[in-house]
Nucleic acid binder design. Structure first.
Lengths: 151, 151
DNA sequence: GTTGCACTTGCAAATGCGTGTCAATTTGCT
DNA sequence: AGCAAATTGACACGCATTTGCAAGTGCAAC
């Protein structure tokens, strides 16, 4: 559980090492993304960034996201709304459960499912490279306890 | 395993019952989709349809797909290329494995995974409404047996 | 079979999200 | 400071899909 600053910092260090220049715009974008606990799309990110620095364009947000994705620093997810959403790669792999009513995204991880997927692929003659698993659901009414998996 | 005609016919009957007019264009589109063993996107479908009837527009293909989807007659899938692909709903539920090298789509079904997903959702306080599971892989080299799961 | 009207269609233009272009600016190095 | 190369903002463009609208068509009622 590293601090926001540390997270942003490690980002910067990694990018510098990859020969990527650290500009004012990129620094701001990285800060905002690092602090975000959600899965923002390009537009959301753009708005959040604008709040700190009015001289950043949407193009730059898109470009930065692409660069970060190529470097493996972030991950891009496309849920059913068709828009790309971004999140840090510095956490362990996980899948997503999307609340149909609110759009809230909950992260989870299941070893069993991970393993089953590999087995299924193997059975079909394939080597699993990656997968996409999204659960879409509504909060249970009875004995509601929908406070797990923060964020 | 019903014949192509029967499949198209049941489609028509269902649509009529739902108050949807059976036009020449819709009939052709339905026929082509019913006979298709693949997961065509709008453009592919459009081309296939054009081969039988030159007076059908891409708009109509899109509109028809939307209507059919709303009625639950077909399912829409969006894999990593971002385009929508369509398939009949008259088969049992299944997930997809996509061959990264060829783009081939293989269908599979795993009760264990289905069940695990529901369990995970429940644990997080949600009732599972639907899910999306896609495996992306490459054919195994050793003792290749990648001829399973036709289509 | 003719009629009437709501439903459909084709076409062109419009969306929405994302990428390409390019002149002007900025960065990192010396 | 001085410069080459990387980066940026503004805007044009690309692609898949949707929409507005005038003209055409299915089909229930005569």
């Amino acid at each position: 559980m590293q601090s926001k600053n540390a997270r942003t910092l490690s980002f910067e260090t990694a990018l510098r090492a990859a020969g990527i220049r650290m500009t004012r715009q990129r620094r701001t974008i990285l800060e905002v993304l690092a602090e975000s606990e959600a899965h923002p799309d390009a537009n959301q990110l753009f708005r959040d960034v604008l709040a700190r620095d009015t001289s950043i364009s949407l193009s730059t947000v898109y470009r930065t996201m692409r660069i970060l994705e190529e470097r493996g620093a972030i991950q891009r997810h496309i849920f059913d709304d068709g828009r790309a959403r971004f999140e840090h790669s510095d956490r362990e792999h996980h899948d997503h459960l999307i609340d149909i009513e609110t759009g809230r995204v909950i992260e989870f991880r299941s070893e069993k499912i991970e393993q089953l997927q590999a087995e299924i692929a193997a059975e079909l003659g394939y080597e699993l490279v990656r997968h996409r698993l999204e659960l879409y659901g509504v909060p249970k009414k009875s004995g509601a306890r929908a406070s797990r998996g923060r964020k």
